[in-house]
Design a protein around this nucleic acid. Structure first.
Length: 317
DNA sequence: AAGGGCCTCAACCGCTTGTGC
DNA sequence: GGCACAAGCGGTTGAGGCCCT
């Protein structure tokens, strides 16, 4: 795909540095990689290419496996319900594609990211919705067919400073001085969701021992309620993880995703039916109450989760 | 038919995070 | 605490196909 000679940065890409192959994968390479991983399993990507007999860097192998060769990867069109889920999750999580992908079986973060950038963001813009904040665009630009924003810079996610806990919500708060209280509430709640994620990551970090075959992020995905069939655990182990794991964040996310969990909002939506666009994401924006009590549930469940993870890790050993 | 522009998405890059020593 | 290494993540790129004129 990309021209190797086009990478003219100050740093030399690893693949060029060691004279490895770049660009599109050939069927032969796919076969080599898939065959090796099926025999030996995932992991140790840095040394995998040499062991598998591939002239690729480990990163490239990992990406090819994760995004294309992995058996669980679903190919083909994004279904309408998947699209709706992506929209809802993006409203909740922002550009956190791996988190979004984790909740959509068979879809990869790359695929969802591409689909968002090429389809959904444009769709939102055409509906007068800012794809970054899920808030209405400037009313002046709204419903303005003479000034289509298809190629507007906002169609692509704006570069954001990297941070340990990137918060898509911050972008939603930028204009809250003029925004509605409902949006502020939403964003407060979502910020809490981000914090919750951090709690979970911290809470399970101790259980992430360096066992052979351990896939970083696999338990994290589980904890986050992200069903992943490629984490290297058997069904029994996965069930063990599920059992008693609480998966509160997953439940929380589900409750956010499911509008039925928001009676007020649902009521508003019912009222809005017929009077506004049925696919208006803002019409589906949940209106949160304060003090749901989930935070304490999270904290207690973290302890259970941690203990449970330790137990499972012992079994894996 | 041609060719220019647009669109899609696989692949890459740079950075961050986690872990072991 | 600092360093090195492995892995994951989000942003970006560009080849190839499609569409329009």
């Amino acid at each position: 795909m990309r021209n190797p000679s086009s990478s003219g940065g100050t740093k030399t890409p690893c693949c060029i540095k060691v004279g490895l192959k770049r660009g599109p994968w050939t069927p032969e390479e796919d076969e080599l990689l898939a065959g090796y991983i099926n025999r030996e399993g995932e992991g140790r990507w840095r040394t995998l290419p040499k062991r598998a007999g591939l002239l690729r860097c480990g990163k490239s192998c990992r990406l090819r496996w994760m995004n294309y060769l992995r058996p669980s990867v679903k190919r083909g069109q994004i279904a309408p319900d998947e699209e709706d889920l992506i929209l809802r999750l993006h409203r909740l999580l922002g550009n956190r594609w791996s988190l979004i992908a984790g909740r959509i079986p068979g879809r990869t973060d790359n695929e969802i990211k591409n689909y968002w950038n090429t389809h959904l963001s444009k769709k939102l813009i055409s509906q007068g919705i800012d794809p970054r904040t899920h808030k209405p665009l400037n009313p002046e630009t709204q419903n303005s067919s003479s000034n289509p924003p298809a190629k507007a810079p906002s169609a692509k996610p704006a570069p954001r400073p990297r941070s340990p806990n990137p918060s898509p919500i911050s972008s939603g708060l930028e204009e809250t001085s003029s925004g509605s209280p409902a949006i502020i509430k939403v964003n407060d709640q979502l910020q809490s969701a981000n914090n919750m994620e951090a709690v979970y990551q911290n809470g399970t970090a101790a259980a992430h021992g360096g066992q052979a075959g351990y896939l970083p992020g696999a338990e994290h995905y589980h904890v986050m309620g992200l069903r992943s069939s490629h984490h290297g655990l058997s069904n029994e182990e996965e069930e063990d993880l599920n059992c008693g794991g609480d998966d509160v964040f997953s439940s929380f996310l589900n409750s956010l995703i499911n509008e039925e969990a928001f009676p007020i909002q649902h009521q508003l939506q019912q009222q809005a039916i017929g009077s506004s666009s049925d696919s208006d994401p803002m019409a589906a924006a949940p209106v949160f109450g304060i003090g749901t009590g989930w935070e304490s549930a999270i904290m207690s469940s973290v302890i259970n989760q941690d203990n449970n993870s330790r137990r499972v890790n012992e079994q894996v050993k």
